[in-house]
Nucleic acid binder design. Structure first.
Length: 467
DNA sequence: AAGTAATTCAACCGCCCTGGC
DNA sequence: TGCCAGGGCGGTTGAATTACT
C-alpha cells in the first residue's frame, strides 16, 4: 500500500508539539469540542493534521489524564488484563482511568516486559520462559485442543506472573483493586454459561461434559464502550446482562465477599442452588464428568476457571495429586490444608473442579509444587481479591490469540434462558444462617441428594445439551 | 566532566473498519 | 458495489533523558 501521509500531502508540521500549539489546541477543544478531527487544525489555526491533533489531545492534553508513574496496583492490573486481552491496549486502557493506551503500551514494552522476563515469565504467553523456550507452550495448546482432558500446561502450571503478583500482594502497601471482582450479574452470567452435556464414554460410563463461558464473557466485561469497532469479539449477545468497564465489577458484591471471607466455603452453595452438595451426597450417583473433547471448548473451560474464581472459591489450587487436573468430590478444607485428594472423594471428574461436602464447588490447578508451596498461604492469608486476580492472570492460552470466538454467539442467551442457576438473596444473611440451615437441610438432603442431583444434572444436560 | 549505552515516551506510520456517497 | 475520507488501533521510530563507565 502506498504511503499515505496527510501531513506530507499538506506539508504540515510534524514532530513534537510546542507549548503554543498545545495551547491553541486546548483552547479550541475546550471551547468547541473536537467534532471532526480533520477540521480541528484548520479551525484552531494549527499546521497539523487532524490525526496528530487527535493524538495530542488523547495522549497529552485531555484534562482527565492521570500523570505520573504507574502504581504497583495499576501495573498488576495491566498484567492481569494483558493476560486476558493481549495487546489490546485501548481496551486495557479503558480499565485504567486517566491512562492512555499509548502510555500503557510504553510501560508494557519498556518496563513490565522486562520485569516479567526477570521473573522467568514470558510476557507474551504469560507462561514460564522455560516452557516457552522448549516449545511446550505450543504443544500444550495443541495437545489440549485435541485431548479430552486438560493438561497442566493448558492451565499454565509452574511459576509465572502469578507468583510475581503474590509477592506484590504480600506487600502491605499493595491493595488490590476492587476491579478484581465480578458483579453478581456477571457471576450469574458465568454460572448460566456453564454448559453440561451428557455423554457416554467408550466404556459405557456416563459422562458429563462441562464447558463454561467463552473468552467473550471476559472481553465484553473488560471492554469499554469507546471501542466497539475494533473489538475482536462479535457483537454482544442481545440479552447481554452487562457491558461495563471493569471498574464497576465490584458493584453489589462487597457484602457477599465479606461474608465469603468469613466462610469462604459458603458462597457457591448460596448462589448456585443446583450445585449444592452435602456430606452425605453419594457421589456414585453422579454421572462421571469429563472435560470436553471439543477443542473449541478448551478456551471456554479456561475462561470458566477464571470466571469461577469468584469469591466462593477459596482454594482453587486444592485437589488431587494426579497428573491431570481432576474434578473431585471432597472436603474443601482438607484440600486446603494439604492439597491432597480427600478421603471422601470418589467422584472423579476431569477438570479442575471439586464439589465439597459442605457445598463448596471449587476449581483449581492440581499442580505443581510451585503452587503447593503457595497454597498454604493462599488459603490462610490471601484475600479473595487476590484469588480473582490470580485466576484472571492465569490465562496463558487466551493470550495467544488463537482461541478467540470459539463458542457460538448464542451461548449466553440460550443458556441464560434455560439455566437453573440462581442468585438469590444476600450472601451475608445467608451466611449467618448457613449453619442452621445446613443442619436443617442435611437430613432432607440425605434423603434427596441422590435424586436431586440426578435430576439436576439431567436438567442441566437437557438444558445445555443443545450446545 | 565527557562519552556512551540504555531507557523512556511522544509521535508517527500503516492498516483496518465504518459510514457516506 | 466500489470508492473515499475519517476515526481508531497496534506497532514502530527516534529524540530526549537517565544511567553507567
Amino acid at each position: 500500500m502506498g504511503r499515505h501521509s496527510c501531513c506530507f500531502k499538506q506539508k504540515l508540521r510534524k514532530g513534537l508539539w510546542s507549548p503554543e500549539e498545545d495551547e491553541k489546541l486546548l483552547k479550541h477543544i475546550t471551547k468547541y469540542g473536537h467534532g471532526c478531527w480533520s477540521s480541528v487544525p484548520k479551525q484552531a489555526g494549527l499546521q497539523r493534521c487532524g490525526k496528530s491533533c487527535r493524538l495530542r489531545w488523547i495522549n497529552y492534553l485531555r484534562p482527565d489524564l492521570k500523570r505520573g508513574t504507574f502504581s504497583q496496583q495499576e501495573e498488576n492490573l495491566i498484567i492481569e488484563l494483558h493476560s486476558v486481552l493481549g495487546n489490546r491496549w485501548s481496551q486495557i486502557a479503558a480499565q485504567l482511568p486517566g491512562r492512555t493506551d499509548n502510555e500503557i503500551k510504553n510501560l508494557w514494552n519498556s518496563c513490565i516486559k522486562k520485569k516479567l522476563r526477570q521473573r522467568g515469565i514470558d510476557p507474551n504467553t504469560h507462561k514460564p520462559l522455560s516452557e516457552v523456550e522448549t516449545g511446550e507452550v505450543n504443544t500444550s495448546i495443541s495437545n489440549s485442543s485435541n485431548n479430552n482432558t486438560l493438561s497442566e500446561e493448558a492451565f499454565g502450571g509452574g511459576p509465572n506472573e502469578l507468583n510475581l503478583l503474590r509477592a506484590e500482594i504480600s506487600k502491605p502497601d499493595v491493595v488490590l483493586t476492587q476491579a478484581h471482582t465480578l458483579s453478581v450479574e456477571d457471576q450469574f452470567s458465568f454460572q448460566a454459561s456453564l454448559s453440561f452435556k451428557a455423554n457416554t464414554d467408550s466404556t459405557g460410563n456416563n459422562l458429563m461434559t462441562c464447558s463454561g463461558p467463552t473468552k467473550e464473557f471476559f472481553l465484553e466485561r473488560f471492554t469499554n464502550s469507546h471501542d466497539n469497532s475494533k473489538t475482536p469479539t462479535t457483537s454482544a449477545p442481545s440479552d447481554s446482562i452487562g457491558y461495563f468497564p471493569l471498574q464497576r465489577l465490584n458493584d453489589g458484591l462487597s457484602d457477599a465477599r465479606d461474608s465469603v471471607n468469613q466462610d469462604p466455603t459458603s458462597w457457591f452453595n448460596q448462589n448456585t442452588r443446583n450445585f449444592e452438595m452435602n456430606s452425605e451426597f453419594d457421589s456414585n450417583s453422579m454421572p462421571r464428568m469429563q472435560s470436553p473433547a471439543s477443542s473449541s471448548i478448551l478456551p471456554s473451560l479456561i475462561d470458566m476457571r477464571h470466571s469461577i474464581s469468584l469469591p466462593s472459591l477459596r482454594n482453587p489450587w486444592a485437589g488431587g495429586t494426579n497428573a491431570f487436573h481432576s474434578w473431585k468430590a471432597g472436603n474443601h478444607k482438607h484440600n486446603s490444608s494439604n492439597g491432597d485428594v480427600t478421603t471422601n472423594s470418589n467422584m472423579e471428574l476431569q477438570s479442575n473442579c471439586s464439589f465439597a461436602e459442605n457445598g463448596t464447588f471449587s476449581w483449581g490447578l492440581e499442580d505443581g509444587k510451585e503452587y503447593k508451596e503457595n497454597q498454604n498461604t493462599s488459603v490462610e492469608g490471601e484475600t479473595d481479591d487476590s484469588k480473582w486476580s490470580d485466576y484472571l492472570l492465569y490465562t496463558p492460552l487466551l493470550t495467544s490469540g488463537t482461541v478467540q470466538n470459539s463458542a457460538p454467539q448464542s451461548l449466553f442467551s440460550d443458556i441464560k434462558s434455560e439455566s437453573q442457576f440462581t442468585i438469590e438473596g444476600s450472601c451475608t444473611s445467608w451466611h449467618q444462617n448457613h449453619h442452621l440451615q445446613q443442619q436443617q437441610q442435611q437430613q432432607q438432603q440425605q434423603l434427596q441428594a441422590q435424586d436431586l442431583y440426578t435430576k439436576d444434572f439431567q436438567k442441566l444436560a437437557t438444558a445445555f445439551g443443545q450446545f
